[in-house]
Design a protein around this nucleic acid. Sequence first.
DNA 1: ACAAAAATAATAGTAATACTATCATTAATT
DNA 2: AATTAATGATAGTATTACTATTATTTTTGT
Lengths: 218, 218
Amino acid sequence: MNEKLFLRNPEESVLGRKIVKHGLILINKIGFEEFTFKKLATEISTTESSIYRYFENKHRFLVYLINWYWSYIEYKVVFYINNINNPEIKLKTVIKLLVEEPINKNLDTDFISENEAYMLVMWEGSKSYLTRNVSKDNKDRLFKPYKDLCERISSIIVELNPKYKFPHSIASTVLEMAHSQKFFMQNLPALTDFSKDQDDKKIILFLESMLFNSIQAK
Amino acid sequence: MNEKLFLRNPEESVLGRKIVKHGLILINKIGFEEFTFKKLATEISTTESSIYRYFENKHRFLVYLINWYWSYIEYKVVFYINNINNPEIKLKTVIKLLVEEPINKNLDTDFISENEAYMLVMWEGSKSYLTRNVSKDNKDRLFKPYKDLCERISSIIVELNPKYKFPHSIASTVLEMAHSQKFFMQNLPALTDFSKDQDDKKIILFLESMLFNSIQAK
DNA sequence: ACAAAAATAATAGTAATACTATCATTAATT
DNA sequence: AATTAATGATAGTATTACTATTATTTTTGT
């Protein structure tokens, strides 16, 4: 985890882990704009100043959480495609991992819940880079996990068709749309062909068709 | 323009138009998070309370501007595809209209600058719906212009291939990516296959290939 | 041209936000 | 047991996101 994202590593203390765990839940509950360190402090019975000792501000905290998610997804991707040789099956595996909402087994861990992180990325993900500091933040490598994952997907695409001209763009499109289409399905269904509260299978089919028809076109 | 977006119609007064014009420019300059009605008031030599008489809050103001843009784009789309019969050419025209940065001829109009609106949508567009109020706002028809445009693109896709299963999703994907890929190109180029400061042609080619290969796949 | 109505400006006020700073207390380490 | 480090308690500040009130200016209808 990039050290510029925190002042004190939250993984290394009880309070730190509490901040991360409950901060994530609180952002999901009230939304990033409404979220404040004050509210979080009250929630976990600590003080604002204690939280400020871990994170510079709430935006860095958001990026920290988002990065945790993308690093975790990349770990999962590597794990699941490890002994697959066919790049087509690799890509299908990736799409499934991106779209499918993780089931929360580990309800009582004292750190990040996968499921909460998934919701955060869906609702607040793009706010991590849609700021006037993007370029500066990018130089500080704050978006490395996302870019790494994009690169990894891109390289599988190249495996499948070395002649395809837009491996990174189609990879970032799939990455963005995995969550956007789900968000639209649940909140602005007119922007999709999936009805509200439908399952993920149709989104997966859509992304697969978009990806493979793009890559494998003659 | 949806009447829930404003308290007093800004088009109908000098001050109203000034608020809209310079508000748009100011958001682009400092970013939506940093933007306040106070700062805008100072900029145009009026008072905070005067601005509040036009817009309930800055989020509604943002949605107002974004909606202006999408309505304008739909008007342009209708105008440009008016006497085209071939749906393929229609879609290519739409993609061009979405991606290409409008050249600012009308520098001194007293209302919205097309070019500034384009920048706003690229940087702040998704913030209009990424809030806890999406569903409520959607019921108030705040996203109608965007949804209408999506529907229009979708119907051209159906013209081209009535059997294609995801006309709305691919339309919203093209809509989102037209601006995202450009943003990435300029700010996070690792997520694309276009180098910084390159022109729009490659993005257009990418979107065209993605769209047509999806729709016309056997 | 004059009165009434409408719009704007000026000013004040409030609770909350996004911090920074200081010092006391508690917990961990050597 | 002494030192260091982490946390808590408290205070303070400029700014934000508003609401309210009253004065002044502009527009309009007759």
